[in-house]
């Protein structure tokens, strides 16, 4: 096995183009796959110490809009602790692994690993995140919604890697919350998770996004539920009322961690709980990056 440590993204892109090696960031998923024999990379390209891939700051995106930009190699611990990011994303990051795992693991790794139960995916989906993908020929930008194609599958080409995650600057003005359930507190892998973001206007829910994970091959937006809830007051809705729009949207399976019927039950409760937390705050809660 070859181990390469490029010092810039352009060097990393060139090395990836010529070697078609495997990108390594925090390593917390990569080593488990290697140890279990799922993959045998000939070349590992370690991008974790490239400075420009670390950090959270305000930037202007390809559409000239202001965004919160997150470097792909920003660690999960840094995401969880950042005051510059929306609550749901911090809560999702906090739900990943253990302190040791969060210190190593990166948000780019959580995204590109594309596990249906990745705890930052539903938050990113409900924040309208966009991903900047890098190749030696340049970059392309893709919406979070279009990035995941199946369990552990994404639109990333063999010569591409994730450089940045971008959130609309307005996401800091929204109230948001994340909920997950697993079978123990530390290290738990989500049996189901949910993330909600919204703006309360005169006590009514607007600009609502509901995303769920671990209940379909990819993280999902629940459009029907968003439609049903938009314009309503939180007091007007009950858990029973939105069971149907949720169950219509999700496709949970029975697997080693949980059963499909349990996942259906808890997803409804998790969404309701996250919504209640959002509604209890009347506006956004983060400082905005770059402070």
């Amino acid at each position: 096995m070859r181990y390469l440590k490029p010092s810039s993204v352009s060097e990393a892109a060139d090395v990836l183009e010529s070697s078609r090696g495997m990108i390594l960031a925090g390593g917390t998923d990569a080593y488990v796959y290697m140890a279990e024999g799922f993959c045998h990379p000939e070349t590992l390209i370690d991008i974790s110490s490239i400075d420009t891939l670390r950090g959270i700051y305000v930037a202007t995106d390809d559409r000239e809009e202001e965004v919160i930009r997150i470097g792909a190699c920003t660690t999960i611990a840094e995401i969880a602790a950042s005051q510059d990011l929306p609550t749901c994303l911090r809560q999702g990051a906090r739900a990943v692994g253990s302190p040791q795992i969060r210190n190593l693991g990166t948000i780019g790794g959580n995204v590109c690993n594309a596990s249906p139960c990745g705890d930052t995916l539903a938050p990113l989906l409900c924040l309208d995140a966009r991903f900047v993908l890098r190749a030696s020929g340049g970059t392309r930008v893709i919406a979070c919604e279009d990035f995941f194609t199946g369990p552990k599958k994404t639109v990333l080409k063999p010569n591409e890697f994730l450089e940045f995650i971008e959130l609309p600057a307005s996401s800091c003005g929204k109230a948001s919350a994340f909920r997950m359930i697993g079978n123990r507190k530390g290290q738990a892998i989500s049996q189901a998770n949910a993330s909600v973001s919204l703006v309360m206007v005169d006590g009514r829910m607007s600009d609502l996004r509901v995303a769920v994970g671990s209940v379909a091959p990819v993280p999902l937006r629940l459009g029907k539920l968003e439609e049903f809830l938009t314009g309503k007051r939180v007091k007007e809705v009950s858990l029973a009322m939105f069971k149907e729009p949720i169950l219509e949207g999700i496709r949970p399976i029975d697997d080693v961690r949980s059963s499909a019927s349990y996942r259906q039950e808890v997803t409804v409760a998790l969404v309701f709980d996250a919504l209640a937390e959002c509604a209890s705050k009347d506006s956004g809660e983060c400082e905005g990056a770059g402070a």
Binding site: G27, Y31, V32, A35, D46, A77, G97, Q100, N103, L104
Partner: peptide
């Protein structure tokens, strides 16, 4: 050997990590 148990925890640049998950 897969980051679940923490027996291999060391401090790397001041942060606790699973040394089984780091090259």
């Amino acid at each position: 050997g897969e980051g679940e148990c923490g027996a291999c925890t060391v401090l790397l640049d001041g942060k606790a990590v699973n040394s089984c998950l780091v090259l």
